[in-house]
């Protein structure tokens, strides 16, 4: 699989990253190299192998770890708002979103 500039642009859009021309070119080069290194994995036979094994805990998560439905204290708003919000703001302010 060749990594083209178009692919990088598409992926960058998905990841919400804006790259200038220089960055794009160097990303094409670096990512091509890295992906072809990743391609080594294709040699490995993984038929009949479970993909989820690592994530399963050997402890009873449902009974032992999940949270009971108890309301706790929320945080003070001023401790949560973005530091650039104006004093007294009640919201997180963003550019107008057109729907």
């Amino acid at each position: 699989m060749t990594i083209t500039k178009e692919i990088i642009e598409y992926i960058a859009m998905l990841a919400r990253l804006q790259l200038d021309e220089n960055e794009k070119n160097s990303m094409v080069a670096d990512i091509s190299k890295i992906i072809s290194y990743f391609d080594k994995l294709k040699e490995l036979d993984t038929s009949n192998i479970d993909a989820m094994e690592f994530l399963v805990m050997d402890e009873d998560v449902f009974e032992g770890a999940l949270r009971d439905d108890i309301v706790g204290k929320s945080y003070d708003r001023e401790d949560l708002l973005h530091p650039e919000e104006e004093e007294g703001s009640e919201y997180f302010t963003v550019p107008r979103v057109v729907e």
């Binding site: 439905d69 108890i70 309301v71 929320s74 945080y75 708003r77 949560l80 708002l81 009640e90 919201y91």
Partner: peptide
């Protein structure tokens, strides 16, 4: 209609001042 949110203990009560039923 749980009392608290799905991943934290903030209330699910409807309404409230903006951003006051929140935590990190």
């Amino acid at each position: 209609s749980t009392k608290s949110k799905i991943f934290c203990s903030c209330t699910t009560e409807f309404g409230g001042q903006p951003n006051t039923h929140c935590c990190p």
